[in-house]
Write a protein that binds this DNA or RNA. Structure first.
Length: 268
DNA sequence: CTAATCACCTGAAGGC
DNA sequence: TGCCTTCAGGTGATTA
């Protein structure tokens, strides 16, 4: 479910709520969710900071870091009390203050990793898609070394980290590029448009607090609003706001892909 | 290297 | 109402 914008909104909210909290207990209800890698459970540690890289949430403790990936249906909730709703609760962190950080995940794909070394943990992860250090030139250079279709490339977190199925489709629409366009066929101008489109799309979604299609909620339990601003994703058979063509959905790289055949013609 | 498929899980939605 | 199939915001492993 959550892509970079949703994770960013979650991180901002967590940052308001949990730094300074001291862990008093950790309960793991679904073993595979919590990957301790042999390190002791960080009970009695303090939460020092909350950050993000791509779709990962990074929580700094005393010596170790909790690194969380929500995958499809993971949800973090900050509660003032021990949980009332325990359905799909996979991991529970209790604090000395009485508050709790709860990890819910119906599909159980999400993971919480424990590591002393985030740099090492992220050694194969691409650059964050809205990292200010990541330039248009870096992007075109990255593209020049690759072939294949543009959409699978954008989804691959080893290159750019943070885009998922919704925002790839939205970014390609904004840049007027067909998702099956071969990377080698992209002009310098198109690459540049795509770079801008990705940033505008992600930052716009953050401003709307993310996209809630079904499960996504912030740690306060709030929905996002960006679902009301989607241009192609989840709009199959509807009319393009820009050219009035009918939005198409087809499989590209194994993923349901939405685009406007009028605005995004395939040039190959 | 790229592409396709499966695996991991559950729930919602659509067809009959 | 119920059964069956398909699909879902993700990603890693395996196999052509």
């Amino acid at each position: 479910m959550p892509e970079l914008p949703e994770v960013e909104v979650i991180v901002r909210e967590l940052r308001e709520k949990i730094p300074g909290e001291e862990l008093s207990d950790i309960q793991i209800y679904w073993k595979k969710t919590f990957v301790s890698d042999g390190y002791p459970l960080p009970v009695f540690n303090t939460i020092h900071a909350v950050n993000r890289r791509g779709k990962f949430i990074i929580i700094r403790l005393n010596q170790l870091f909790l690194i969380i990936h929500l995958r499809m249906t993971g949800k973090l909730i900050v509660s003032d009390t021990v949980p009332v709703d325990r359905k799909h609760l996979q991991v529970q962190f209790l604090f000395k203050s009485g508050k709790a950080l709860l990890f819910y995940d119906p599909r159980k794909f999400g993971r919480i990793y424990l590591t002393p070394d985030p740099e090492e943990f992220f050694s194969n992860l691409g650059v964050d898609a809205i990292d200010p250090q990541f330039s248009k030139h870096d992007f075109t250079r990255m593209l020049s070394r690759k072939k294949g279709s543009i959409k699978p490339f954008l989804l691959d977190q080893h290159h750019l980290a943070g885009l998922g199925n919704i925002y790839v489709d939205e970014s390609l629409f904004r840049a007027r590029i067909h998702p099956e366009t071969s990377i080698r066929a992209l002009s310098v101008h198109e690459s540049s448009q795509l770079y801008q489109a990705i940033r505008k799309t992600l930052n716009g979604a953050i401003a709307h607090m993310g996209t809630t299609l079904a499960d996504y909620r912030t740690p306060d339990g709030n929905s996002g609003r960006h679902q009301n601003f989607l241009k192609v994703y989840d709009r199959e058979h509807e009319t393009c706001f820009r050219c009035k063509s009918v939005i198409v959905k087809k499989r590209v790289g194994g993923r349901g892909t939405h685009f406007c055949p009028g605005c995004q013609p395939l040039k190959k």
